[in-house]
Amino acid sequence: MKILITGKKIELTDGIKGAVEDKLSKLDRYLHEDTEVKVTVSARKAKQKIEVTIIPINGPIIRAEDSEENLYAAIDVVYDKLNKQLRRYKNKLKGKYQSKGQESIRFQNIEDNAAEDKDGEFDIVIERHKKFDMKPMSPEEAVLQMELVGHDFYMFRNIDTDEISIVYRRETGGYGLIEHE
């Protein structure tokens, strides 16, 4: 596991780096050795925030974040969130199938040596399917359409790139754009 730690508006001391690396290294049992783990530590007024994104070789991207007055408490909370998510994905890997004949979703590159969750498995059920026409438009037009329909995101075909893109409303205000790489 490769841990990359960056700081925003905070000086990263050896103690902070060591605490993050020590805590996240416990997740090694779930992850392939080439898995990239990006950690961002930031400070705002009295709150310390830590964001962790795990980018596996194959499988889903796993992300967790937390803000606390004490950075070390935030590190513990994020570790607990990631550990729970990885255990769930590991259980899914064991080949548990969903009921009612639905296909199982399989996740890869998570090793098989962690403790079982009490509930054993979880089901992913897609409750609604939706199809719609996508006329080419600019990201600005897509934001206007998103506001008109009252959603927090809007998928559209970008007129400049002819690719599918998504605009979304950010929690901190403003808008974001997601594009295919």
Rank of each mutant, 00 (worst) to 15 (best):
E127D: 12
M134Y: 02
M137Q: 13
R128P: 00
I110F: 01
E127I: 11
K130V: 14
D119M: 04
D123E: 13
M137S: 07
E103P: 07
K130T: 14
D112T: 11
D133G: 04
G101K: 05
P136N: 15
S104K: 09
K118P: 01
D112F: 06
A115N: 09
E116S: 12
E121A: 01
R106G: 10
D133P: 08
K118Y: 06
E116W: 05
E121H: 02
F132T: 09
E103G: 12
P136W: 06
A115P: 04
G120P: 00
M134T: 15
K131G: 13
E103S: 11
F132V: 08
R106W: 07
F132A: 13
K130N: 10
I110V: 12
R128W: 02
P136V: 13
A114E: 13
A114V: 04
G120N: 05
E103V: 05
K130M: 10
K118N: 07
N109Q: 07
I124A: 01
P136G: 15
E127K: 10
N109F: 02
E121S: 03
K130P: 00
P136D: 14
Q108F: 04
E111R: 11
D133N: 12
K130D: 09
I110E: 00
P136I: 11
P136F: 08
D119Q: 06
H129E: 15
F132P: 02
F107W: 04
K118G: 03
N113I: 11
H129M: 10
E116Y: 09
G101Q: 05
D119K: 06
K130S: 12
V125R: 11
D117F: 00
G120F: 01
F107V: 10
Q102G: 08
A114F: 07
Q102N: 14
N109I: 00
M134R: 08
K130I: 11
G101W: 03
D112W: 03
N109P: 01
E111C: 02
V125K: 13
G101D: 10
A114H: 07
I126R: 14
E127V: 13
D119C: 01
F107H: 05
E116G: 02
I110C: 00
I110Q: 00
E121Y: 01
N109S: 08
A114R: 01
K130Q: 13
A115L: 10
M137P: 04
N109C: 03
Q108A: 04
D117A: 03
I105D: 08
E103L: 09
E111A: 09
